[in-house]
Design a protein around this nucleic acid. Structure first.
Lengths: 157, 157
DNA sequence: TTCATATACTTAACATGTTAATAGTCTTAG
DNA sequence: CTAAGACTATTAACATGTTAAGTATATGAA
């Protein structure tokens, strides 16, 4: 039944059910699981992304690579690196090939911290997998990846 | 033999493929489509969420309802409402039943602005639907909704 | 070599995210 | 009716998001 047939054709859809809001809600729901654990270690979500990116490979990364991996803009990353360096969780070394870059890596303290948090983080992730379904979650991630990879052209009004 | 100082465990999954990062990437990709249009009208994503929420129903909303619908925290919403009021896109009226609340609604200017942006926004949304698949997008939104609705308990380390 | 341009990062300025504290207003136990 | 506590919104303080400008280094054309 269509009781609203008299509404204008350019009626906007309820924004609560829009894709951006759906993605926002889903992400907030997922992060609610992880944030208390990070708070226990005085880490923001963004700081944790940096530490995780540096722990993924044992090698050094420059700020550009790190920004790409953590999905942080350069100015935010600059401030975050300064604070992590002050806390002695990361270290910087000059790049001998390019004086503009510095090579960033986990410090011993940083590696220890990641090691302490890692198991809990994995356990939380597995609890999401169990609640939602492992294969189902895998399919969802694949769909999200396809969506992100789409070439969408912006149109200006 | 393993050294006593712990190395980052390799048992963590690559965080680039984690659920939080997947959701973040997907959302950024979707918002890239809409942000230029909003920028043309000097609106942030958050300001647009407020205007959209107020236009969805012609009725007045208090700040609490608005915060829930727009997924904004109260302090952010307070500042955004102040700026929208200064631009005369919204209006506030005293709630006769409760002096703590004020009832917020679109001004004439605000309603006009939403009317001007609405068609372009809908067109962009349809372009995403076409590129990704209408039914496929509907299924994705349903999955995201299920994920957000899950009761996930945080665990502290 | 020299100089204009590009690149990598940082800093600046302001909006928003986030938690804690504050100020009014409402509600209700006593 | 009063006072204590709860509720609603705002303000404060600091981290992060975002765009623009600035600094230092690298690159390439003449």
């Amino acid at each position: 039944m269509k009781p609203l047939s008299s509404e204008p054709t350019n009626q906007m859809r309820p924004f609560e059910q829009s894709l951006p809001m759906g993605l926002l809600r889903a992400r907030e729901s997922a992060m609610k699981v992880f944030r208390p654990m990070l708070a226990d270690h005085n880490l923001s979500e963004q700081q944790w992304r940096v530490l995780r990116a540096l722990s993924a490979r044992a090698e050094q990364l420059d700020a550009g690579e790190l920004a790409e991996k953590t999905f942080l803009l350069a100015p935010s990353l600059s401030r975050i690196l300064a604070s992590l360096e002050k806390r002695e969780l990361i270290e910087r070394a000059d790049d001998p090939a390019d004086q503009r870059r510095s090579l960033i890596s986990l410090s011993g303290n940083g590696a220890d911290l990641v090691s302490r948090i890692g198991p809990t983080s994995e356990a939380l992730y597995r609890s999401i997998e169990e609640a939602f379904g492992r294969d189902r979650l895998k399919r969802l991630l694949a769909e999200l990846s396809d969506l992100a990879a789409m070439e969408l052209h912006a149109v200006r009004s």
